[in-house]
């Protein structure tokens, strides 16, 4: 990292830092917000930031999209990150759908999709169970 922080270095690495900012915004939503649906949205933002990071790794300056043009001197961006991320997007929507189904099911059992209310409800249930066990003894 000799003389690291020059303009070229800054411009060349800015994309990574921008994606880290975006990723951390999604992470903050997941950690700090108690609403389960919002957590899923936060997870999607996190995921999209990872996708952008991968796609930016495959980008070559002055290159074009990896569709063969017939021009032998054409430079193409790396198609492999694109393939990877295509698969990841589809798997991502599958997990999102499963998460949303779980939210609907949780709402059905608990009557709420707020994390702290669910936790409080579980604690009350536990106290009730303990009291009942005491009685039985």
């Amino acid at each position: 990292m000799e003389g690291g922080f020059e303009t070229g270095f800054l411009l060349g690495h800015m994309n990574y830092w921008l994606f880290v900012i975006l990723m951390m915004t999604g992470f903050y939503i997941v950690v700090a917000r108690g609403n389960l649906l919002k957590k899923i949205v936060g997870l999607n933002i996190f995921q999209a930031a990872v996708f952008m990071l991968y796609i930016s790794v495959g980008k070559i300056s002055g290159a074009t999209a990896p569709i063969i043009t017939g021009n032998p001197d054409e430079v193409y961006s790396n198609p492999l990150p694109h393939v990877l991320i295509l698969t990841a997007i589809v798997v991502g929507i599958a997990t999102t759908a499963l998460g949303l189904a779980l939210i609907v099911r949780i709402n059905e059992s608990y009557g709420t999709i707020e994390e702290d209310e669910i936790q409080q409800h579980d604690l009350e249930q536990y106290d009730k169970d303990c009291a009942r066990a005491e009685e039985a003894r």
Partner: peptide, 26 residues
């Protein structure tokens, strides 16, 4: 960033299907 295939998948899946699923959930 030259990823046209990823772009239209993201627009269809992220902007379309996932929004519909979330609207159903709320």
């Amino acid at each position: 960033m030259d990823a046209v295939d990823v772009a239209f998948t993201e627009a269809a899946v992220g902007g379309g299907i996932s929004s519909v699923l979330m609207l159903g959930t709320i």
